[in-house]
Design a protein around this nucleic acid. Structure first.
Lengths: 242, 242
DNA sequence: CTATGTGAATGGGTTCACAGCT
DNA sequence: AGCTGTGAACCCATTCACATAG
């Protein structure tokens, strides 16, 4: 089903960033070996990842930085405008709204939403924070493509559902919880779909909605684990051989 | 080399979070099927992931929430104290410092560092921001285990190197760049280690240092890609069969 | 001779079926 | 009978070797 490995997409993002850096240094040509070094992967991997989407190089020569950059941007969907709302405008939501770099890729923050009376009405960046009750109409009226979710974990599922009901196609979830179609009511364990994924007839609004998670508490915990068990991590610095 | 899949560790973190939610709801027993539903994975996967680290359930019965929670905390290294410094105390760094939930796991922020004269000396949370020049002595004097890196991308490599030189064992990198042992000086492409990962003789300080990345710009870009190509994503809502 | 692009082989992770306890 | 724990099967991602193009 995934004819392109998920990990390959993450790597493409990295290659693109490297190409931007190269362009900034007025380096106009590169190679799979060079990209591989800078990205911390193998050159095979670079070539294979690119090959999923086309042929962007010249044999014997390598890649032309601006061309490969343009092609990767196209592949990743970064040559078009994305209208984004942020739901949750606490410290994290504001840090996201103000983080530089998003607008470089035509991610435009068009609306900010929260429930807190202290925040609603306030100005953040060039936007006025709205109450989350206005979300649905706003998304429909403003061609919002995706929502960034920066609410406390206990509100994340409801806020995500609101985004989906409103019609966004993608959610970037910063809350440390799994969001998704709400399981049918009932006890924890019952007999439907034995030993596999659950699925249900409600929750169809979620069909086609993409969720990406950015969970830094999880990152902390993974870091703790690998710091205790370094041998379980494929490190950038290879082991001593024999 | 990775006898435990990296993805399994991420899932263990999710299971742990679910167990905490269950405990908060005074639910004392669960099962692989129940955990699987809540985590959005298969029950096979849950059992296999747990099996990498031991036998925590009772056949025919399932798992006892507090026991499994305790065991997962132990496995993940969350039953001990971690002393953490944050390098970069801009909006993002402050949001991290103030984000609730870290201290639940004995992650203790013991030092904050920045270069900006506007920030150094200021009070954030209960800590005074120090100049990054003090990092080395501080890390050595205060048994710092890991560093969270929230500086602008162009400073990330140097700040990471400073953390490593100072002796931290883990880095949680929020900057949208690859950090690691600095490649040897020289042109982009040369002949060492043909077609594979680079490695070098300097950069040995990085040996054993764990780097985890939390890159939300990358998350945005992945989201853009999958929103354009939903069929390439294994969705929580399964496809219509046939 | 160089470096890409790609079918084939390898290896690691997920899925499965069932053995083993309760 | 029920649900965990696990060796084996399967499948997908990475690695490789080489054919191809410049």
């Amino acid at each position: 089903m995934a004819e392109v490995p998920t990990a390959a997409i993450s790597r493409l993002v990295t290659y693109l960033r490297i190409l931007e850096q190269l362009e900034g240094q007025d380096i106009s040509r590169t190679s799979s070996t060079d990209l591989a070094e800078r990205a911390g992967v193998s050159a095979f991997q670079v070539r294979k990842d690119l090959a999923y989407f086309g042929r962007f190089g010249t044999r014997g020569m390598g890649y032309t930085v601006p061309i490969l950059k343009r092609e990767l941007m196209r592949v990743l969907g970064l040559n078009q405008t994305w209208n984004v709302v942020i739901v949750g405008v606490g410290r994290l939501g504001q840090a996201i709204a103000n983080y530089p770099g998003a607008s470089d890729y035509q991610f435009q923050y068009v609306g900010l939403f929260d429930v807190s009376p202290e925040l609603v009405g306030r100005q953040v960046r060039d936007l006025t924070v709205r109450h989350i009750d206005e979300l649905r109409d706003f998304v429909r009226g403003n061609k919002v493509d995706m929502g960034f979710l920066a609410v406390p974990p206990e509100r994340a599922q409801d806020a995500a559902q609101a985004l989906v009901d409103a019609g966004v196609r993608g959610i970037l979830n910063f809350a440390p919880v799994v969001i998704g179609p709400r399981p049918p009511e009932g006890r924890a364990t019952d007999q439907r779909s034995v030993d596999g994924n659950f699925q249900q007839e409600n929750g169809d609004e979620w069909r086609g909605v993409i969720v990406e998670n950015v969970d830094f508490l999880a990152g902390m915990k993974r870091l703790a684990f690998y710091t205790l068990n370094p041998h379980l991590k494929d490190s950038p610095v290879p082991e001593d051989p024999a």
